[in-house]
Design a protein around this nucleic acid. Sequence first.
DNA 1: CAGTATCCAAAACGATACTG
DNA 2: CAGTATCGTTTTGGATACTG
Lengths: 225, 225
Amino acid sequence: MRSYGQYCSVAKALDVVGDRWTLLIVRELLSRGPCRYTDLRSGLPGIATNLLADRLRELEAAGLVEREDAPPPIATTLFRLTERGAGLAPVIDALGRWGVPLMRDHRAEDAFRGQWLRLPVRMFLTDHEPDRPASSIQIHAGDQSVVIDADAGRVSLRLGADPDADATVTGSPPRILALLSGGLGLADAEEQGLRVAGSREAVLRVLPRTGNAIGDSAPAEGNVS
Amino acid sequence: MRSYGQYCSVAKALDVVGDRWTLLIVRELLSRGPCRYTDLRSGLPGIATNLLADRLRELEAAGLVEREDAPPPIATTLFRLTERGAGLAPVIDALGRWGVPLMRDHRAEDAFRGQWLRLPVRMFLTDHEPDRPASSIQIHAGDQSVVIDADAGRVSLRLGADPDADATVTGSPPRILALLSGGLGLADAEEQGLRVAGSREAVLRVLPRTGNAIGDSAPAEGNVS
DNA sequence: CAGTATCCAAAACGATACTG
DNA sequence: CAGTATCGTTTTGGATACTG
């Protein structure tokens, strides 16, 4: 990116991370931790492979990312954020928070990845019953599966499926997000096509008590595979 | 800007404000308040006039900016942020804060504007003696003049010159910033070519007590016009 | 002052094919 | 898996001229 040529820290920051895709690569590394090239590409649907390689080189040159040749169990190179790179977390958070109202307009062709729920989980969910034993909720959002754990006051997210989860929630990404953000109550969400199985308490344990107003005006949906 | 096509609030936010120049326009409107077209252009050195017009249209369409036809005293149209647009302040702040370390590399061709000191002033300065009567510091940074006021615990910045200021500080933008950020003590700054006149107390009243490390390794400079 | 309109060269982007 | 290489398209940047 051509420099703005302005002696202002906002402009200087954008000189480094203002390029298209750059902040999304950082988002991906922040929410997934060290990643292989392929992991990054699958977490950044739409990016051209040469652009990803370019950006990684630039990020490395700028000292935000470093590559590491992982030993045998992985046997490939990993990309990880440096401390300086991880320092962008407040920027990603601020953008993500500002972007929340935009999640109402979901377009059919929008891609979705389970790890993108990490930010809303951190933003909206809390463990309201920290003294109860750990519980977990299996989420199936579209074709993505993640598990939300509540344990001793902390709520966290991991990718994949867990057959021992206390509850299972299935629905489209917008509906799931509406539920997590408090824009839609559990009962309303079910009425709109979201399916809940197992312990409702496990779900209510972490849902926000106050609405954040995503998706409360979305139309009802049909069956969700 | 082409949409990223990702159902993620960070990506959605960047769909709206990720275009080149867009966030800098927002920065300008945040730090100057409602602006005329010409004000914006002068606060965004390097932007092409058609790009500025384009971006303003886009921002207006996205509901972040609105234009207002001001009555006689001004008799021209003003551009102002909507509430939604002003909601980007945390994004600008986060970027600006992350960019602070980059201010060490000052290039001769970098442009500078007085209003760009507003963010560092908010970030670094505090009124350490809120009970004393108001005081002010005239800053001449390169060819830009601003006044920093300390009054009843609040520090603020206004553009222009004030002959009644209690102190005057003159130097290059990097040196001024080093001083304001605490990277350089008042004495050290003077040794490096920054000139201070009038009440040093007025200056010390607002300077940070702890360093923020901008410019402490910068070479000494010669005379500053 | 507040733009619009054009033009052009350069850079960025996106898609795809290919490689060690 | 981790990229390169190539190529066509789109977007910018920058300059300049013009308008009400």
